[in-house]
Amino acid sequence: MKKKIYGALGVAALALAAFLTTNTSSSASDTTLFSLFKINAANAECCSTPINNGRCSSLTGNCYPDPGGANNCDSTKGNC
């Protein structure tokens, strides 16, 4: 009897885990980044050059200077 209960609980736990995992991944895949929306393309857009001294805004897709930060784009406006 105990084995049956433990077995049922195990199956329920696995199902719950699978459900949660599926939910999480679907919400993450729904997230859309730069390619999907740019609020204002008038600033220096994000592009990578040997200068790379800025960071790309997740929302605007524009590059802004970021001294000492994790740089991934060139903020020197108009060089690319």
């Binding site: 993450a28 997230t31 997740s58 994790a70």
Partner: peptide, 14 residues
Amino acid sequence: KSAAPNEYIYQKAC
């Protein structure tokens, strides 16, 4: 990570 991932920032803004 050294900076907040873009996906996390975007989700937060939404």
